[in-house]
């Protein structure tokens, strides 16, 4: 994971379920670049977390869960977005928290399929709002090389990722 996008992993149950959160901040450029103002169309800006990056957050949450099942020894790569359905009219505005919950439906040596639900939390009112359902497939690429060669070192679960584990008060796996 060369680019950690989550803030904290708050729950993880080996081989079954993980929950991670990502806060949306006004200070992030990305929220202002998505649906910026368009005076010609008479549209004001709508700062929000782009849905594509919500999918990325879900992929990282589920990817951590799949990696954790084998103590992060496998290189876990997102192989397929099977489904990504967002609630109409719901957007992740600055000041809200995105909560990703990933569940492994099936896993074998070659990969895993996961179901994901995404909710929006209002840290002030404690309201929780359904946001999206996102289903993903992951490949253990060392088991699916198909003639391709990859670096021997684990370029998925890097030191940056281990810092995320530290920030989540989760133990690093042996050897890291």
């Amino acid at each position: 994971m060369r680019w950690a996008w989550l803030d904290r992993i708050v729950e993880i149950e080996r081989g079954r379920r993980a929950v991670a959160i990502r806060n949306v901040s006004w200070g992030e450029d990305v929220v202002h670049d998505h649906f910026e103002a368009d005076p010609k169309a008479g549209r004001v800006a709508t700062p929000m977390m782009p849905h594509t990056l919500v999918v990325e957050g879900m992929a990282q949450c589920a990817g951590v869960l799949v990696g954790h099942a084998h103590d992060f020894r496998e290189k876990v790569i997102l192989a397929k977005i099977s489904k990504a359905v967002f609630e109409e009219g719901v957007v992740a505005r600055p000041g809200t928290t995105i909560r990703h919950t990933a569940v492994i439906d099936r896993m074998d040596d070659q990969g895993a399929s996961c179901s994901g639900t995404v909710e929006l939390l209002d840290p002030h009112t404690q309201d929780v709002q359904p946001f999206a359902t996102i289903d993903l497939m992951f490949s253990h690429i060392d088991q699916n090389r198909q003639g391709l060669s990859f670096p021997e070192h684990n370029f998925v679960f890097t030191e940056q990722f281990m810092l995320l584990l530290d920030n989540s008060n989760l133990p690093r796996p042996a050897g890291f």
Binding site: A79, K80, S82, R106, D108, Q110, S113, M137, S139, N144
Partner: peptide
């Protein structure tokens, strides 16, 4: 594509309640 075959295997297992080695 390649990953789709694994996806299909997983979905067949669920749909038919069977265990499949790819």
């Amino acid at each position: 594509e390649s990953i789709d075959y694994l996806d299909i295997v997983f979905r067949l297992e669920k749909a038919f309640g069977i265990k499949i080695d790819q």
